[in-house]
């Protein structure tokens, strides 16, 4: 074109003007969950069956809890990051994931301020104080939940799940694990599997947890080693307890009831706060299962997943150090 300056004309004439340099590799994976945002989207997709199950059992209570937690987490992330003087990147969806997991771990009856405080603490104390995404030592959602459990023991304790005023059948009864501790009754395995029982929003349906969890493992967004380690070690301890005739719950009750499957697939597998290597992941998962059973069998709490995950989170750096893999060909010889 006549208006082109000589420089532009030259650029058009020689494509070399557009070539750039960078170190190899020059290609990146484009299949599967190939960005952090995709990994978070994967988790949200996998959580859909759990959300549906929660909506079926708890109706509007579930909507309320999810809305409060997600909004709180996203707002907290935006605010706290800005206060740190950093650019808030909400696009990675990590705050949404924390919000959904937190909501699904709360009882339906928790008052509105519980979700608000838990969400703020989860993002603030659980994540931003460590330096934001990727830097936290503990699972943020569990930090938030632990905080409100300590602050509001009544609103979150075993009795929170029961309400005589509720119109919903499932939620007038105590949770299966509480009933086992208090009354020595065990729920039917079938209702535990489908989810027509009381409990935190996300933990009632074993079927939904399995569906979402297996999807996550197949996408390699969650590590199957962690989920398998948790479930297997719980099963082994529960089986021993069952054979010794301790308690009224069978091995299958321990696996299907409470937050075990939800925790194994969605909470323990948080990559940030779990180990890196396959061996480390097995140790981590087995450790969670052992702590869960320790608490279920010997403590006053009917449930132990949250504390088990937090305890094992604390050991993650140590596990990483213990499980530095042997390179192919062995360690490099020490140079003299």
């Amino acid at each position: 074109m006549a208006e082109d300056t000589p420089r532009e004309a030259e650029a058009q004439a020689s494509p070399e003007a557009h070539i750039n340099v960078a170190p190899s590799p020059h290609l990146a994976s484009t299949s599967g969950a190939c960005t952090t945002r995709w990994m978070m989207l994967d988790v949200l997709i996998a959580l859909v069956p759990l959300i549906v199950a929660a909506l079926v059992v708890f109706r509007l209570y579930a909507v309320k809890q999810l809305a409060i937690c997600v909004v709180t987490c996203v707002v907290a992330e935006a605010l706290f990051t800005r206060w740190r003087g950093r650019h808030a990147n909400l696009n990675d969806l990590s705050a949404v994931v924390t919000g959904v997991i937190l909501a699904l771990s709360l009882p339906w009856s928790a008052p509105w301020y519980v979700g608000l405080i838990a969400g703020t603490v989860a993002i603030g104390l659980g994540k931003i104080v460590f330096g934001g995404l990727g830097q936290n030592l503990f699972n943020p959602a569990m930090v938030g939940r632990a905080f409100v459990l300590v602050c509001f023991p009544v609103a979150l304790g075993a009795t929170a799940y029961q309400s005589d005023t509720s119109a919903l059948d499932a939620v007038t009864a105590a949770t299966p694990l509480t009933r086992a501790v208090q009354d020595g009754e065990s729920a039917s395995l079938w209702s535990l599997f489908l989810g027509n029982v009381n409990g935190s929003l996300g933990e009632t349906s074993a079927l939904a947890c399995l569906a979402g969890g297996i999807f996550l493992c197949l996408r390699r967004t969650a590590s199957w080693e962690i989920a398998a380690g948790t479930i297997l070690s719980t099963a082994v301890v529960a089986l021993i307890a069952q054979l010794l005739g301790d308690g009224v719950l069978s091995m299958l009750h321990h696996i299907l009831a409470g937050a075990l499957l939800f925790g194994a697939f969605f909470i323990a597998t948080d990559p940030v706060s779990s180990p890196l290597t396959p061996t480390g992941k097995w140790i981590f998962g087995v450790g969670i299962g052992l702590f869960v059973m320790l608490m279920r069998l010997f403590s006053g709490y009917p449930e132990g997943v949250m504390f088990a995950v937090l305890l094992m989170n604390a050991t993650t750096p140590l596990i990483n150090r213990w499980t530095i893999p042997r390179p192919v060909g062995g360690p490099a010889p020490v140079q003299v």
């Binding site: 020059h26 960005t35 952090t36 990994m39 995404l133 990559p271 290597t277």
Partner: peptide, 13 residues
């Protein structure tokens, strides 16, 4: 080419 921005490591492994 890769034109995504670098984000923090989430230790996905």
């Amino acid at each position: 080419l890769i034109d995504q921005e670098e984000t923090p490591c989430v230790r996905c492994g």
